[in-house]
Write a protein that binds this DNA or RNA. Structure first.
Lengths: 349, 349
DNA sequence: CATTTTCGTAGGAGCGCTTCCAAGGTGACC
DNA sequence: GGTCACCTTGGAAGCGCTCCTACGAAAATG
């Protein structure tokens, strides 16, 4: 273990003001000062004013540790994210989540603690969450490891998943809060758009088979294809990265050279696929129409710009944050909140 | 203020184990248990073993609040980031930072608290940091607002900037820790590469004039151009986003239609510029060679793939984390750590 | 006018932990 | 064998805060 660490703020100086000092300055007792600060109930207007002045004067802010010790709350929530590897690194999904969450918590005092869920360290992560270090958790269910999901559900810690966790079978849905878009419908919409513009031999570059977003979008594609009486065999998988998109496109066009439309389960993969299509002499959208998914920045900047299905990450994360807040206030868990996907038509299809 | 919140973990159940329980189970006093847990100094081997067993058995982990209250440390550091807006959202910079920081802290107990520095709320941010809620801070100096930078420096809170803060004039450098790449040299290298391949009329799409990365890369370009005896007037500015890159490219080619090379200060802007070049009938790299900056994922997937200057975000953030750790252990601040940029040659130049 | 209710306030206990201190036990050394 | 040093240990204080309880004064009630 490390030696004694040096104090964050030097103790030699007057130091951080305490409630005691505020009370003294305001000429009231510690209790009154505390009450004044925590909502001002049962405090006379004069006392309230005096305390507020003292607080402003001293630049006081309550010691969270002390408060937390007695309230048994921490006023902080965990943002549980999978270890940011190459994939997450190039994925704007996370930044969007953060943005939405921040906006949900904007006018609370709640802090966000980043919890990196390292693969193989679930034990540690769960212990951290269990032992009251945070009041709740937002879990970015963007990883392939559902033992963590399961463990979190067992925990009874107020928590909301962004994106349906794979462990969310219908039976346990009620015990489990999540926010997601309807990826099945999204997949259907994307495919239908291709069908509507006349494509008949439509392939798909699907996401990983162990992530709900990957699975569901593929299901949506299947549904649309069978409903239209088309074959649903032209499937290759990627892992949502640019590189995998390029590879997948190559495989797809090799195995099914006659495709005239591709539904690609993420814009990033589409960004990888488009250059390959060009290289193989396919004009987009004339020879092969392409629809992506996510609509997160990259979509508009590909060549040609990508028709894509909107996944409103920011709104989802915001909703997740608000739901968590509700739970922290004691509200009972509500059923999953599913956003409707929307299609943005650009040049690629 | 909000009403009483519900406890994160239900108190009716056996609840979270305390040190007292561990001690009882191990058959030692609370003090001994504490000593055993915090490094095991002055504890007999038997006692140590007994405590360790009890800890494992009970799944104990110390209450951070209680510990923090007495040690006056929080064992957490702030990651101060500018409010994630559109720009940050589509920027993999942040994810990389997180990745690097996480790796630096991997085998410590230190938690990362996300502090969103909202514009116009500097007061609040500073107060939070000042009042001992965290032991130190990593500041992603990726924003345009240097009053925060200045305030943080005043704070005497151990902190490390990722990216040179604009307020870091040579005089205050010593009081201020940061990690950065040599953006001037990076700009020079990029430009030199264009010169070397025969470009003579080189323009630049520079970053914002109020961010050190923007300023320095432009300086580098200027240096290379004047050293080569070329005119350094073909400058337009963007704000590091894709959209601004597209606009800037249009402006540049309108004002200076004879450019045969462009140094673009970020890959994202380059990603916006390339389609515009294509649209205006310029072949890359034949008619106009292009060098980008950052080499963060997008670079490899543009059409054509982008020659770019590596900015090792992950390594930088990791270094920043390690330096902060050093400071927390009492080490004296060290001079800025500057990474050398590297050029990755791809098809665009 | 006496009595109850209400209100604002102060004091004190105690949250779980670290750490100071004194005490006890052991071995080394004279 | 006695003294000293050293190591291990438990008791107790106290970190800054909230909240329970008690209390006096003011307001409302009979």
């Amino acid at each position: 273990m490390a030696d004694r660490l040096v104090r964050g703020v030097d103790a030699a100086r007057p130091g951080v003001p305490t409630l005691e000092q505020v009370a003294a300055k305001a000429g009231v007792s510690r209790s009154t000062a505390s009450r004044a600060i925590n909502g001002g109930l049962r405090v006379s207007p004069e006392a309230l004013l005096a305390v507020e002045a003292a607080v402003a004067d001293l630049g006081y802010s309550p010691n969270r540790a002390a408060r937390s010790l007695v309230t048994r709350r921490t006023d902080s929530i965990a943002l549980v994210v999978p270890e940011p590897d190459e994939r997450v690194l190039s994925d704007p999904f996370f930044a969007g989540t953060l943005n939405g969450l921040a906006s949900a918590l904007a006018d609370t005092e709640i802090q966000v603690v980043l919890v990196i869920a390292r693969p193989g360290q679930n034990e540690r992560t769960v212990r951290y969450l269990r032992n009251g270090h945070v009041d709740g958790a937002i879990v970015v269910s963007h990883h392939r490891d559902d033992t963590l999901d399961r463990a979190l559900v067992e925990l009874r810690l107020p928590s909301v998943f962004v994106g349906r966790p794979l462990s969310a079978t219908p039976e346990v849905d009620s015990r489990l809060q999540y926010v997601d878009t309807d990826n099945v419908q999204g997949g259907r919409m994307a495919t239908q758009h291709l069908l509507d513009r006349g494509c008949r031999r439509i392939g798909t570059i699907a996401g990983p088979e162990d992530m709900s977003a990957g699975i569901d979008r593929l299901i949506g594609w299947r549904q649309a294809m069978t409903a239209a009486g088309q074959r649903d065999d032209a499937v290759v998988h990627g892992d949502f990265t640019i590189v995998s998109g390029a590879e997948a496109a190559r495989r797809l066009l090799t195995e099914y050279p006659d495709v005239d439309g591709i539904f690609i389960a993420s814009d990033l993969m589409a960004a990888g696929a488009l250059p390959v299509l060009a290289e193989l002499g396919r004009e987009v959208p004339q020879d092969v129409a392409v629809v992506g998914y996510d609509n997160l920045g990259v979509a508009a900047s590909t060549q040609p710009p990508l028709t894509s299905v909107i996944q409103p990450v920011v709104a989802m994360a915001r909703a997740a944050g608000l739901r968590l807040l509700d739970q922290l206030q004691g509200a009972t868990p509500t059923p999953p909140l599913i956003f409707a996907p929307e299609l943005v038509v650009r040049a690629s299809a």
